[in-house]
Design a protein around this nucleic acid. Sequence first.
DNA 1: ACAATAAAGTTAAACGTTTTTATTGTGCGG
DNA 2: CCGCACAATAAAAACGTTTAACTTTATTGT
Lengths: 343, 343
Amino acid sequence: MPRPTIKTIAQETGLSIATVSKALNDSPQVRPETRALVVAAAARVGYQLNMHGVQLRTGKTYQVAAIMTAPGPKQNEWEGVEYAQLLSGISWALEDSPYRVALYAVRTFEESLTTIRQIVSLKKADGIIVSGTHADDPRVRIMQEADFPFVTYGTTIHNAPHAYVDADNEQMIRHAVARLAERGHRRIALINPMAELSYSLTRLQAYRGALDVAGLSFDPALVAHGHLTPAFGRENVLVMSTRPDAPTAYICANEASALGAFSGFHARGLVHGRDAVINATDDLNVSQYFAPPITTYFLPIHEPSEMLGRYILRRMEGEAPQALQTLIMPKLIERSDDRLMSG
Amino acid sequence: MPRPTIKTIAQETGLSIATVSKALNDSPQVRPETRALVVAAAARVGYQLNMHGVQLRTGKTYQVAAIMTAPGPKQNEWEGVEYAQLLSGISWALEDSPYRVALYAVRTFEESLTTIRQIVSLKKADGIIVSGTHADDPRVRIMQEADFPFVTYGTTIHNAPHAYVDADNEQMIRHAVARLAERGHRRIALINPMAELSYSLTRLQAYRGALDVAGLSFDPALVAHGHLTPAFGRENVLVMSTRPDAPTAYICANEASALGAFSGFHARGLVHGRDAVINATDDLNVSQYFAPPITTYFLPIHEPSEMLGRYILRRMEGEAPQALQTLIMPKLIERSDDRLMSG
DNA sequence: ACAATAAAGTTAAACGTTTTTATTGTGCGG
DNA sequence: CCGCACAATAAAAACGTTTAACTTTATTGT
């Protein structure tokens, strides 16, 4: 027995396939009693909409493309792990909709650009979710010019307004710097993501602003930009800690780099809380198991990720991007008092 | 100007759409010169195959469903991070094929079961990749009964032969236990995944076998089964280390639990290498940054994940599952000598 | 030279929908 | 009681592709 179609229902009810289709789509053109008849018959024969027919007819794909910029195979460093939770959050948000998440794993920014260009021009998806935004992001421009629905994880700085979700990096870094300054730290290092990323710039500016407010001077030698791997965090502690005026506090952009920083402490014989302290943002709940646990800013990642899913749905329904912009303030988790030991 | 179709090419070349279709699909029914003509015209007008038409006509979806069992939103523990790398590996392996990865995030085993049932019965994908196999896995049975192409990440024990990729848990655990025994350890704890998982059983049996070989006795109190979170690793160290005959070595099934075990050491004032040691399998390159670094069995995760992608392609082409079974032996990375301090 | 065969195309149908256009029947005002 | 508007349904076309069945032309064997 072949899979039932609207034709099956039409025969079953004696109606035409047109009426069946309209009934199933809640068209006002069909009498409620007729609709009930159709619905009953559909249930009876076990009808399930065949998406291929719909897709061909309407041109809609019912796919949301998730662009995932993950490090290449040779790169064995611990990086990009947050994608797993990001993707599942998106997937769950789309669960009750007809949309599915189609994964596009790319290795580089350029590759993501060509991938997006292709998705847009060939309509391979109805919406796009992209992360790792640049301050001036050409991908955003492409999608905007084509009037293609999209949501970014991360803000942009020089682009026209668009839908986004992000942590409130500005507030978070200002708070972190102020808190450390209050506790006596005067040399605060910033382990920052790659410079071209929008949130890297946001953090840097917030950092400088907060230093100003605290009456501390800015030293470019205490700021590092790079891939947020453990190797990167370690590297920077090894270098910075041997300076004549070594930092007494490190603000790491994520837990991977914080773990690396710890490893650097160990290599240099530094003791956390005595010689210097580490704080981290983008906590994934790993830091609480560090020895000793460190102070972090925690953002349960399912919040922004489910929001990305909900936003892309609303964006695909035509809602204005301005209404779909959210910065989430992560919560401070103080696992260490982080006071400067006068030494 | 609307998007060009085979009809456009037909008009352009004066051929029928049937011939154009055959030419583009390398049918032997069309002359090489004609084919060249068609290909040239296709390039000229910028033709791109519209998948929706193909899908409707052939019933193929060109989607590979990746079932990702991720912990629910409330579960903030660091778990399942390896999925990010797994997914990108699969995605890369499918890159040059017409297939895409469609993500199905589920919360529980039961949910994965109903999801798979649906994908199979409604043909929502052409192939399935599923992980977290049970010793006797009903999902495998469902797919086999429907003759649906699939590959599992992880073996099964009681199911009929099928395509799989996995780490060689048997060899790995045997090696790990033998190595620790050689170094003088007589109380070796096994921090194992949840008991219903196939590889949990494999590991347990290998563990017992290796204990036998080394002339050590098996103590159920030194084996723990559960979700491989840091919390779980910590918990078990806290409990086991207070026993009268506490273990002198812990074999953790992944880095998350190893990290938690470290945290447990810290809480109990245990020193790694003096009071006890930790080894881990399923290294994601985090352990090298632990302080001190620990001995692990390392498997570059892009290897099994790309293999999953290649295998599902071959499986969908009809290749026998028996030809698509691989166990990969992870490489020992000895970061600590792990000798028992007689004390 | 002629039927049989093969090669290379063409025609037409089909996949399952949605949607535009056409048809039917009904109630209503005049 | 006639025509008209309107509601409800039906008919038909369309989306882009593949493929079975058919036609034409050239080639072969006798």
